[in-house]
Design a protein around this nucleic acid. Structure first.
Lengths: 171, 171
DNA sequence: CGAAGATAATTGACACTTCAAGTATTCGGC
DNA sequence: GCCGAATACTTGAAGTGTCAATTATCTTCG
């Protein structure tokens, strides 16, 4: 469709057809992109809610706390508050509050950096490591179950497509 | 797999291969499912943050308010608080608060249902409709841009795969 | 009819989140 | 050395979110 440009010379009329086509395509894209976004959002919310409920009932903790501990677990040398903020994709003020709570429970510690006294290095305590290990293994099983209806191939396809999306968004 | 029972009669040996395969598969699945979940989460957070910032800077409003108004826009006869709660995937107490705010700004109204005095039917006011229309068209363009790096085919593929995921999770 | 139980919405306590403003420290020129 | 800018973190206010308890209304059935 929309190949009638050659005929314009003969008709001398404005040609609404291509415009309509373009709008139609845009409209379709509206529909698909919006639909896709709502579906991603729906899946994420459902899964997040499930995990949050599990963390609450099984370990009496919350997703942000688990998330912060997960970041620390992969960084034995500790992380700066700003690094935590960046990795958790939340603001710095938020990290302060969550860290306060975990520190009060003895699961993490703030250690001053002798080289830069503005900085705190946050680390898991041994108690924090123990508790995180217990949580992490159950958590992984929840995830596996939630994604259990997808074949290995489908999962890899999703990882691929979402990778493309992510790199475009981040840029 | 696991169809080698017939051959066992001939070999009379234990068959370790399938066991190793199974364990390997489980281990891979750990990795892929977790990776997939983190990637979905990352994409969702990035997009959500972007939209929230846009709503704030362009319209001085928030995502939950926009979300509630979007639900109402598709239901001219109004929605019960509980219906809003369900569609927005948040708890009832939350809906009360957001509705309070919007009502205070004159964008929605609570109307008592004469047939059942426990329920409120929440509706957009004309002012609310006008404001939502302005927001919605920009919002759609943000979404289109954010998903702009994906082809129409890729988007449909994602919708499909996530649909499978969603139906499994919801069940 | 009338009490027991279900349903609709609100409230209060607490946790998380953003943003903007504030404090402390370090870095870069002069 | 010192002053201004940048960086690291904390604080406080307002909005969002959960959960559990409460109030009000409807429904059921004896």
């Amino acid at each position: 469709m929309a190949k009638e440009a050659a005929k314009d010379r003969a008709t001398l009329k404005a040609v609404p057809a291509p415009t309509v086509d373009a709008e139609t395509r845009v409209h379709d894209d509206h529909h698909v992109s919006l639909r896709l976004w709502l579906r991603i959002l729906s899946c994420t919310n459902q899964i997040e809610n499930r995990i949050r409920q599990n963390l609450q009932s099984r370990f009496n903790t919350t997703l942000p706390r688990f998330d912060l501990m997960a970041q620390l677990e992969r960084a034995p040398e500790g992380l700066k508050m700003s690094e935590l903020s960046q990795r958790m994709m939340v603001t710095g003020g938020n990290v302060t509050g969550i860290t306060d709570g975990l520190e009060k429970e003895g699961l993490v510690v703030r250690e001053v950096d002798p080289a830069d006294r503005r900085v705190f290095r946050v680390k898991l305590t041994p108690e924090g490591q123990r508790q995180f290990q217990r949580m992490a293994s159950e958590h992984e099983q929840w995830i596996i179950d939630l994604f259990g209806s997808l074949s290995q191939k489908q999962k890899k396809q999703l990882v691929e497509l979402l990778g493309e999306l992510k790199s475009h968004i981040t840029a």
